[in-house]
Amino acid sequence: MAETVLSANDLQGWYGESHILHGMSFEVRDGEVVTLLGRNGSGKTTTMRAIMGILGKRKGSIQFKGAETIGLPSNAIARLGVAYCPEERGIFASLNVKENLLLPPKVAPGGMSLDEIYEIFPRLRERAGSQGTKLSGGEQQMLAIARILRTGAKFLLLDEPTEGLAPVIVQQIGATIKTLKDKGFTILLVEQNFHFASTLADRHYVVEHGHVVDMISNDALEANKGKLQAYLGV
């Protein structure tokens, strides 16, 4: 079995006064694509923010490659090799596309070069001089993923990368994530599009009310379809 890259244990998290995460426990192993599934408001994005260290208050344990990160500021966590693609994409309006791409500093050797990135996302080369927020939604999503591939971080947090995008773009992003998996990236994915998630992931954690209620490996997905529908159905 591959070595554990990230493990969360009894993770608690708060937004101001509201207690969102009530003891999340899960792990992600080297080279895996793992998804967090769950209804809106179950705490998936909050979990991502907690891992990245941008949540106001968190308790419990998050170990990354054996190092405890619960007390670290987010810049120190990023430097360990964790890269974050937020749900709202976070493209900077005051930077052009190329500046957006070059913004995240290198945290480890072995990141992709600008040319390799442009090969995967040719649109970004064409639009290098445009203001970041002038791109279409799909292009912005690609930019948000592309800019963290330069950094050398091998562990990616992708929060709803397909949200609000046209099916053809969703396919393209799916293909990109597959490519990244083949290149050896480890990915924790939050995804509403369950069908999309099932084509990529090795394992799925089901999140409800701020804690993990089930873990289903992708192989066992068919057998557990009824159970999953009960978890995710409205």
Partner: peptide, 12 residues
């Protein structure tokens, strides 16, 4: 200036 939390989450 736009989004300090995200810039910090990139390691700055």
């Amino acid at each position: 200036t736009e989004n300090p939390a995200l810039v910090q989450a990139f390691g700055i």
